[in-house]
């Protein structure tokens, strides 16, 4: 099977800190990889490299076995990214924000796509409200709507639950779960073991820029994984 998303020996150094250090993985279509790790492990940097927001110093990222060239910006249309920052403009309405991104991605029938995307994420009734006036939960669902607008093959989620209350968090998790439709490959970075394990097909623990543990998520229980996580980090001297 051809992997949908592949990273081979990806590294990135900031001044003297090696934020990402030789990370490699393959993800097939429909799989979800949850990445756990302490603060400063380089998880967000890894996601930014996968999203093309920053360049890797070494290594290569491929989508459907086509190497991603940093200078070629078109491959970005195959990727959607959601972080705990919404990447939306507070002074624009929800619809204006999505329309802006739809134009950047050169989508056909942008109005229809926006309506469909907002309906899927259950934010249609907020379409004409300014983003700055929406609750954090709505903003985050809108951020997911923005990331899905161009129907990306790869979805990158960096702490999407940060700052959400339990209800909003559950709602968002349900939406992410419904995106596991077999066609999309998802990478989720989270500190929440419960949510990360619940959705994951594969799991990885990242520390000091490296994947120090990877496994298929077949039978991990929460407490068992918590112990494994702490033991692994201890072994790494974190």
């Amino acid at each position: 099977m051809i992997p949908r998303l592949q990273a081979v020996d990806v590294s990135r150094t900031f001044v003297r800190t090696r934020a990402v250090d030789g990370i490699s993985f393959d993800l097939n279509s429909g799989e979800l990889l949850s990445i756990f790790g302490p603060n400063g492990a380089g998880k967000t940097t890894l996601l930014k490299i996968l999203a093309g927001v920053i360049r890797a110093d070494e290594g290569q990222v491929s989508i459907d076995q086509k190497a991603v060239e940093a200078s070629d910006r078109l491959w970005r249309s195959q990727i959607g990214i959601v972080t705990h920052q919404t990447m939306l403009y507070d002074q624009l309405s929800a619809r204006e924000n999505l329309l802006f991104y739809a134009k950047l991605f050169d989508l056909e029938d942008p109005e229809d796509r926006i309506r469909e995307s907002m309906r899927t994420l259950d934010v249609l009734e907020m379409a004409d409200r300014l983003v700055g006036s929406l609750s954090r939960g709505f903003q985050q669902r809108l951020a997911l709507a923005r990331a899905l607008l161009h129907d990306p093959k790869v979805l990158l989620l960096d702490e999407p639950y940060a700052g959400l209350d339990l209800y909003a968090s559950r709602l968002l998790r349900d939406r992410i779960s419904s995106l596991k439709d077999g066609n999309r490959t998802i990478v989720l970075v989270t500190h929440s073991f419960e949510q990360g394990l619940e959705l994951a097909d594969r799991i990885a623990i990242q520390a000091r820029g490296r994947f120090v543990f990877t496994a298929l998520n077949e039978s991990f229980h929460l407490t068992e994984f918590e112990q494994l996580y702490c033991d692994t980090l201890q072994e790494c001297g974190v």
């Binding site: 930014k48 999203a51 093309g52 927001v53 910006r73 078109l74 491959w75 970005r76 249309s77 990727i79 990214i81 972080t83 920052q85 919404t86 990447m87 939306l88 403009y89 507070d90 002074q91 991104y101 950047l104 991605f105 050169d106 923005r146």
Partner: peptide
């Protein structure tokens, strides 16, 4: 500054437009 708010700049950089 408006791009810094909610890290909108990352959204722009992630889009396929030429810089």
């Amino acid at each position: 500054i408006i791009e810094d708010e909610n890290r909108a700049l990352s959204g722009l950089l992630q889009s396929p437009i030429s810089l």
